[in-house]
Design a protein around this nucleic acid. Structure first.
Lengths: 196, 196, 196, 196
DNA sequence: AATGAATGAGCTTTCATTCAT
DNA sequence: CATGAATGAAAGCTCATTCAT
């Protein structure tokens, strides 16, 4: 499906992805049928298969888009940070902010992680992000800013805190304010025993 | 479905749950059909509906069982701990150990969290566990063992670290050794900046 | 299924038939499962098949019982009537009264008439009743009490009036009073043009 | 299911309804499966659900069509009748003629009357017809053409005669000739005692 | 006599996908 | 490009009936 699309075609494709994203996020991937998507957009079923090989391919495309966007945000956040530990903090903040702002994408990530057919694609993106974070952590360790340890493992710990707290926000348990992010950053930097 | 089961019936019910647990964990809930379960067990399809109202009810029963088991393990771990912070550490260790030992249940929890029909049941259990943890955290704060903060929020942070690292173990990224658990505990207690 | 039943067995059989009659009448024959009947009575499924060859056979037995009861009532009504036309009127009254009093049986008759598997059994009973009525009509014609005509066809016309008005009573459109029966009798005897 | 159908679609829908009507009439509604219908027509099972929400909805659509057709015939019959009693007679004749000519529809009406899920829809049509008939009867009473009485109740009596005699024709007991209709009309107008 | 467990064909319905127009 | 129609495998579930105990 490497169709050469006209500008209007690109537009359509994007609309389909946007609409599908909201349906998948709201109803779940399996329960949302292709018919629901095309009918909801008021187009024939053929349109769908003109732009996507399958329902599966559609989700993959959505996920790839989302990951790209997240990466962009993360990169931008690190741009003008002075020290490694500042970069770490900014990375956490940027990731959480993005995840809070993009509830739909976040839900799709969560779902995709439970399904073999999509988790592989996800892993790659995640592993890139983790590697980046690990690089920062290593630099911070080398600079003596943080205690030594396995940078990859610690990156995952950060990710765990990030993911879970964002999830709570989306569930409505926490307000989507900076306070949550502050707490996350503080916890990641000082743990339970450290002072804040 | 409050059927009065004979001993043989109880046995069958347990077998069905055990087999379904492994199939769901391996293939996913949606892709695993009832027929696959009954055929895999060499019984008629009707047997399934003798013991469970629906495929959905089966998963709910499995999840309830799993939560009960986890709770038991957690309670046992806290039994003979002296200080609040010791209780916290033991709680983390017990939870991670259980989650590592019960990969199937853990996967089902992950899936259930993404599906409205099951996440509600899950929340209740989770909220109990979080409340328990928060109680310990509050006690530790009162005893001056850890820095003050929102106990519920921090409990969730612990949960986030726990969940994500266990996930890595099940994905084969990390070895299922105590080292992972040690790192998790250390991170939770000291964060990145603290010494270890 | 010509089982030799003990007295207690006869009792059980009767209970099953009574309970099934009410369930069939309320829910319909097809939608009422054997399990619903046995569970509703608090007995095992084996009991059912001990007393009846099949669900179909059960309904047939119920219908036969009902027809027998109706016949008895009709016979009794005709016992001490002087003239043929009095016998006709009494027959109509007795049939309607019985049908109004036995809503469940009546509903089963209505259903059975739409299903080939049962309608044959019904026909026999109906045809006996019609033949009896026709005999009275013929006698009345011979006695000059009523106008000449095809006695069988007219008997069916009587039956039609009876059936439809009783149906209305059971549907709640008409009150189950003697007034309905009076109107039916009057209509059958005088039609629309006759005086009353 | 408010699908916008093409001409070809309309055609298919009609074919499905026609074929299903004959199957339902012959085998009964419950015993006729959707598969039997689609296989009998040589189309895929999905076609059925493209045109109808469910098997139940199909029958409802058929019944609505049939009622509409019957109403049309009745209306046409009354068009050029001079007196109220002439209208009554024509109404009876038209209804019986239609019911005799449309054995399949008639059988479906009979079945539908025994099933809650369909009887409600039926009632409405029946009640309209009865109300119309009652209006004629009232006019005839006012004109002194027929004896006074409850017009609604008497309309139902007419309906009862109509239904039962038509049923006999379909069962093969009576020939589908005008003689049956003549007898019905005569019975309704004069009853048993009147002269003919 | 009675029970609870088991059977399995068959049901209605869904849905990703294809295709003629 | 786009549509509506068609496909048919497969799903979840029901239920009359049988049978070991």
């Amino acid at each position: 499906m490497d169709r050469q699309l006209t500008q209007r075609g690109e537009e359509r494709r994007r609309q389909l992805m946007a609409y599908a994203t909201s349906r998948f996020a709201e109803n779940g991937f399996h329960p949302t049928s292709v018919a629901e998507i095309t009918e909801g957009m008021g187009v024939g079923k053929g349109v769908f298969y003109w732009y996507f090989d399958s329902k599966e391919a559609l989700l993959r495309a959505i996920l790839a888009d989302a990951q790209l966007d997240l990466r962009r945000r993360q990169r931008a956040a690190l741009a003008d940070a002075a020290t490694p530990s500042e970069r770490i903090e900014r990375g956490i903040r940027a990731s959480m902010r993005w995840s809070i702002d993009h509830a739909d994408y976040f839900r799709l990530f969560q779902f995709a992680a439970t399904d073999e057919r999509f988790s592989d694609g996800l892993r790659k993106g995640e592993s890139v992000a983790v590697k980046d974070a690990a690089t920062q952590l290593r630099a911070a360790m080398d600079a003596g800013e943080i205690a030594p340890g396995d940078p990859v493992l610690l990156s995952h710990a950060l990710l765990g805190v990030h993911t879970h707290l964002v999830h709570l926000v989306h569930r409505g348990v926490l307000e989507p304010t900076d306070e949550v992010i502050d707490t996350a950053v503080s916890f990641c930097l000082h743990g339970l025993l450290g002072r804040r």
